[in-house]
């Protein structure tokens, strides 16, 4: 096997365990060490590393006049240079295969989160605009949702095609809701996306879902930046 990130050869370790239950590694140990998940105390609402229980951003969200649409966010990884490199290659250059790097950890952390919340959730990936989907060939959020062991529902759709990554925080806060629901859902929803930055996109999506009669919306994201 070749490591997906550094293209070095992976030498499979042979022990009784791996001989009986062979596991296919997609990245080498050196790269795996660089991919560290968020650990230690974190904000209970948005998963940012924080010792205070709730971070400043979340306190701000609570104070907004309309009720906060997103109940809670769980992220797996913090954002750093190494992660940025992978995401650039995966999302923007379109190396579809790189999504598989996160598969195992994403699942493990999902089970860890779902323990604390009830089951019977439906996963809804954040959609791309049609134009961007055409250009990229795949939707990274849908790919992440495929990793999860719960039913998926591609009920959201995005109108217009503005890039969030290029905007400042203020611009994001003011932007109009770009989502529309194709079909209403009456089950609790887990929104799946790659990055939680300000949480604006996820909240827009959650608002649309709540307005159409969805009881509860939480989100599960790969990265908290």
């Amino acid at each position: 096997m070749t490591c997906l990130l550094c293209e070095k050869n992976i030498l499979p370790e042979v022990t009784w365990r791996t001989a009986l239950y062979p596991e296919a590694k997609v990245i080498c140990d050196a790269c795996n060490e660089l991919l560290v998940a968020i650990d230690g105390p974190r904000c209970t609402r948005c998963s940012r590393s924080s010792t205070k229980g709730n971070c400043l951003d979340c306190i701000h969200w609570e104070k907004t006049p309309s009720k906060d649409s997103l109940a809670r966010n769980y992220s797996v990884y913090p954002y750093n240079n190494f992660m940025q490199e992978i995401i650039t290659k995966w999302k923007y250059q379109g190396d579809y295969e790189l999504g598989n790097v996160f598969k195992k950890t994403f699942r493990i952390h999902f089970k860890r989160m779902i323990k604390t919340t009830s089951k019977a959730y439906v996963a809804v990936p954040i959609p791309l605009s049609e134009e961007r989907q055409e250009e990229r060939g795949f939707n990274q959020a849908a790919m992440l949702a495929e990793f999860l062991p719960i039913p998926k529902a591609n009920y959201l759709e995005r109108i217009g095609s503005e890039k969030q990554a290029k905007k400042s925080k203020e611009e994001r806060m003011k932007s109009a809701n770009p989502f529309r629901l194709k079909k209403s859902l009456n089950k609790p929803v887990i929104l799946v996306d790659d990055i939680y930055t300000t949480g604006m996109t996820l909240r827009h999506a959650a608002r649309v879902l709540l307005e159409q009669g969805c009881p509860n919306v939480i989100s599960f994201t790969l990265i908290r930046s």
């Binding site: 290659k89 250059q93 379109g94 190396d95 579809y96 295969e97 060939g137």
Partner: peptide, 13 residues
Amino acid sequence: AYCRNCIQMGRVI
């Protein structure tokens, strides 16, 4: 199929 070797110059698909 796509090529991962030269992907940094735009994906060849």
